[in-house]
């Protein structure tokens, strides 16, 4: 315990700055992937035949181990921030896109017919009726995505990415030293806390933005 406090005394600054960069790259990845997923989702909405293959790709891609994707980025982008961000985006897009397509597909045909029948254009129907109705499922995708990406980002440190992973691998390199366990433990807990905080934020977002009529 005293070893832990001793570590925190000199290590807290690194921990905080790494936490910050961890949060930043995750948030950046989430923002980019939300845009990408929205664009792909819209494409799948307009071209119905695209939905099936996109869903297959999303569920397949989610089974790919993160280390493999990081490895594949190295020959193209080298080490550092960019390949890490790209891998995070690839991972984050999948659940968002999957839930976006699933959500839009799960709306009752009666409601769609009513919307068209009273004279909504396709675009209007999408934004006034379909997206709000699919929104809870979409936010669930965002939540899942963010939690997964926080974990994947920790591996990113191995290829030179920012974040708390650096402390993890640092601790691993110092196996046996007194600071190793406190380092790894506190970095792991920080990652856990970030994931839970993001989950909480998305939960809050869904509480606020999901219509009480469908909650």
């Amino acid at each position: 315990m005293s070893g832990y406090l001793q570590y925190l005394r000199y290590g807290y600054q690194t921990l905080l700055s790494e936490s910050l960069s961890h949060v930043l790259i995750v948030v950046a990845a989430m923002l980019v992937s939300f845009v990408v997923a929205a664009m792909l989702g819209l494409l799948a909405y307009r071209r119905a035949w695209l939905a099936e293959p996109l869903l297959s790709i999303t569920s397949t891609a989610l089974t790919l181990p993160s280390l493999a994707l990081f490895g594949l980025m190295i020959p193209i982008f080298g080490l550092g921030f960019v390949p890490t961000l790209i891998v995070l985006v690839i991972y984050a897009v999948m659940p968002i896109l999957r839930n976006l397509i699933t959500g839009l597909n799960s709306i009752s045909p009666a409601i769609l017919e009513a919307a068209t029948g009273i004279g909504m254009t396709r675009t209007r129907r999408l934004f006034v009726v379909e997206v709000p109705l699919a929104w809870p499922i979409i936010v669930t995708g965002l939540r899942f995505s963010s939690m997964m990406v926080v974990g994947v980002a920790a591996v990113g440190a191995y290829v030179g990415g920012p974040g708390l992973g650096a402390t993890l691998f640092n601790g691993l390199a110092e196996v046996g030293s007194r600071s190793a366990v406190p380092e790894v433990l506190s970095a792991t807990i920080m990652i856990l806390l970030i994931a839970i905080a993001l989950d909480g934020i998305f939960w809050l977002i869904s509480r606020i933005t999901v219509s009480p009529g469908i909650r």
Binding site: L168, T188, A195
Partner: peptide
């Protein structure tokens, strides 16, 4: 389980190694 999902697998892996040996 939700909490477990939030835990980083690489963190768990390294922590286990520190406690139980590689």
């Amino acid at each position: 389980a939700t909490l477990g999902q939030a835990a980083p697998p690489v963190g768990l892996m390294i922590l286990a190694a520190l406690v139980l040996g590689v």
